[in-house]
């Protein structure tokens, strides 16, 4: 099942057969159904998918941020540590120093009653045991790092006093406070305006290179992936259906779902043409799929699609897809 994706002996992130189900009294949802992913240090991976594909749940599992009623199984290793086995106390240290997260909506991630400066300094004090003055100096440094203009004055600002773009930068500063090795980003630019989105994307890319962080970036936007990713993993119904370097995937996706997604994305030059669509809707995932979950919507469906979950095959080194039509060239 768990094919070794990269020869690298010690990847920063190593997910093996990750499964997450949410069981409530009313119903059970199989959100993630066996995800294998590796991330090398200093690499940017985009997880691309639509709502309900399991991309955000996968991201949260890496930090053990899922609610108590979630059942999680599989191997989750970050920076050589087994996340599943961590105690609450170990987790508190792990979050912030090894891995940090930025969210779509900074207003809910920042504390409204503390100034930006205090929130960053507190993180530094808590994790590194630094003195208050050292922590305050670090807070200023971090605001300058994320290119907030008049950083000194902004230290005393409360989150609601900042514009959307500055708030997003402040949240990135909080996340970077203890120099994490891994940054998890859950649609951090989706709520931003076009001219601000590109600024934040370029900032993240610059910071990632400068601090040599690994980044996992969840998005539904192909354009965003094209702008920031080294590699892309496309998720559908709780599984990775295709994975590979960004240029190859954008130029010629292998899996019919990835092909459909690319075809359905409106871009320049499509005017006057009918958009290609993917008929139907994703499965509800009340049962874990036992066949190719995309088969009911797939234009190329055939009998063996329905017999089992297609294995990952690799027609070219470094690229993989979970489709019976994609041959194994490796």
């Amino acid at each position: 099942m768990s094919a070794v994706l990269k020869p690298d002996p010690a990847p920063l992130v190593r997910l093996r057969d990750l499964k997450v189900t949410f069981a409530t009294r009313d119903r059970t949802v199989h959100a993630v159904n066996g995800v294998d992913l590796d991330l090398a240090a200093g690499e940017v991976l985009c997880i691309l998918g639509e709502s309900g594909s399991g991309k955000s749940v996968t991201l949260r599992a890496l930090m053990k941020l899922l609610p108590k009623f979630a059942r999680v199984s599989g191997g989750i290793e970050v920076a050589g540590k087994d996340v599943n086995a961590m105690s609450e106390r170990q987790l508190a240290n792990f979050r912030g120093t090894d891995v940090a997260m930025v969210f779509q909506e900074p207003m809910t991630a920042l504390d409204p009653v503390f100034t930006i400066g205090r929130q960053i300094a507190e993180t530094v004090q808590r994790h590194e045991g630094a003195s208050r003055s050292v922590a305050n100096a670090r807070a200023l440094e971090l605001l300058e790092l994320v290119q907030i203009p008049s950083a000194k004055r902004r230290l005393d600002a409360y989150p609601h006093e900042l514009s959307g773009g500055l708030r997003q930068r402040a949240m990135i500063a909080v996340a970077l406070a203890c120099r994490p090795k891994l940054l998890l980003a859950d649609e951090p630019t989706t709520a931003l305006d076009a001219t601000v989105q590109i600024q934040v994307l370029l900032l993240l890319r610059e910071l990632q290179e400068r601090l040599d962080m690994g980044v996992i970036f969840v998005t539904h936007d192909l354009g965003v992936a094209g702008e920031i990713a080294d590699r892309v993993a496309v998720m559908y119904a709780g599984r990775v259906v295709e994975e590979g370097p960004v240029a190859g995937l954008m130029a010629g996706p292998l899996h019919p779902y990835a092909q459909g997604l690319l075809g359905a994305t409106v871009h320049a030059g499509l005017r006057g043409q009918r958009l290609t669509t993917i008929p139907g809707a994703p499965p509800t995932l009340e049962m874990a799929p036992t066949d190719c979950a995309f088969s009911p919507r797939c234009p190329h469906v055939r009998e063996d699609c329905l017999q089992r979950v297609p294995p990952l095959t690799s027609p070219v080194p470094g690229r993989q897809a979970r489709c019976v039509l994609v041959g194994d060239g490796a």
Binding site: T195, I198, Q199, D221, G223, G226, E227, A229
Partner: peptide, 14 residues
Amino acid sequence: SRPSMDPAKRRTTP
């Protein structure tokens, strides 16, 4: 400001 959709044409300045 639109993302380029082409990783070979990434921008460097906003």
